[in-house]
Amino acid sequence: MAVEAISEGSAKSDFWDGVRLSMPVVVASAPFALLFGAIAVDNGFSVLEAFLMSALVFGGASQMVGIELFGQHVAPWLIVLSIFAVNFRHVLYSAGLGRRISHWPVIQQALGYFIMTDPQYAVAEARAASGKTVGFVWYLGLGLPVYVFWVIESALGAVFGKLIPDTHALGIDFLLPIYFLGLVLGFRTRPLWLPVVMASAVASIIAYKTVGSPWHVSIGAVAGMLLAVVLPPHHSGVGERP
């Protein structure tokens, strides 16, 4: 009894620990969910379709790109390919996260990957780096609010789309870069942090100017990763890290 009560209590606190960490993500993504819903309806989606896309794809940038192309009457296969390209960075996250959650039951892993986003991965990775276990309940506490709010706000955006006031004055188009910079800086104690950030920054800017969006994300990310791979292991500190 006592043991059960304790583990139940700690599971509860793990969940709320995750929920607390999800709040900045919920706040930062809210404008984009509303915006997505509004743009989706504007581009010919029904409210139900906007809701479904948010619930099934659950990837902000890729949904924006998909909707944009849909509005331009691009071929369906190209829209799907673009969604795939924008989300391709998840392959890298997934390889990294797999090392943290391989002790979960398969069903929980399958669900865990479904709600894995940029911040979800980054915050889970930060927890693992600080020596704590990435548990399913904590991970769910972190991801579930983001998912629920994302889907509800997308539908709200679709219904009330035209009511969003001056989005520029509220800065909502630049909230995600600010949030992502905060995440990048959070990793600054990692070995090779500065060289990796420099390589990714330079490569992504060059790719952005030449190949164009969304490929600059994958190209810039691979450049930073490759640098970490080719530098001698004693620089990357792999053996020393717990």
Partner: peptide, 26 residues
């Protein structure tokens, strides 16, 4: 070890690409 070093670099590498071009054109 080199693959692991590469994986450890993923968060900073990917998130940087979501900031740098946006910052440059801002």
């Amino acid at each position: 070890p080199r693959v692991e070093a590469g994986l450890n670099a993923v968060p900073a590498a990917v998130l940087t690409t979501l900031v740098a071009p946006a910052a440059l054109s801002a």
